[in-house]
């Protein structure tokens, strides 16, 4: 690991590592509201079946997860728990924000108790729009995340550098 973290890994090796990481994402599901059921359909329904994308749902703990899907309405009361969850995950870690509520507050944009977007608390890699997004939309989000993983420099992720979007 020292080689990767230092950023001196040769390019073919990086590509190989990224390929491996891309197709073995442990996905932790943080289901909060309606979107949780659509996420449940992605995981549990034979019609959508997320495992064919190389995503493994139901890790025993966030400490084993690479990806967390925040699906649903984030409230101010929930924020400390989400922050704690995120801090427990090992680097490199990825976040998908699923649904309008987690993206920006959604239909509760003027509520007194809803956080206007989970990105105020933790960095988000992929936003999946919709209220709730269809299961296919979440699958698309996962595919986009996999594209990002295959093209990235693992060293930056390992160091926990802030994410810069071009």
């Amino acid at each position: 690991m020292g080689l990767v973290a230092s950023g001196k890994a040769p390019k073919p090796l990086t590509k190989l590592l990224n390929l491996g990481r891309k197709y073995s994402i442990w996905m932790y599901q943080w289901g909060l509201a309606c979107c949780a059921i659509e996420m449940g359909a992605v995981i549990g329904s034979p019609r959508y079946d997320v495992m064919r994308l190389g995503v493994i749902p139901f890790p025993a703990s966030p400490r084993q997860a690479d990806l967390v899907v925040i699906s649903g309405t984030v409230t101010d009361k929930m924020v400390p728990s989400i922050l704690r969850l995120y801090q427990q995950m090992p680097d490199p870690k990825y976040v998908i924000s699923m649904g309008s509520c987690a993206n920006c507050g959604g239909p509760y944009w003027d509520s007194y108790s809803v956080t206007k977007g989970v990105d105020q608390v933790i960095p988000v890699d992929v936003y999946v729009p919709g209220c709730p997004p269809r299961p296919e939309a979440l699958l698309e989000g996962i595919v986009l995340l996999q594209e990002r993983i295959s093209n990235e420099d693992p060293a930056a992720r390992w160091r926990g550098d802030p994410i810069v979007v071009d």
């Binding site: 507050g105 944009w109 003027d110 509520s111 007194y112 206007k116």
Partner: peptide
């Protein structure tokens, strides 16, 4: 009723 919704 006099509690304002700040976002608005």
């Amino acid at each position: 009723k006099d509690f304002p919704l700040l976002a608005r």
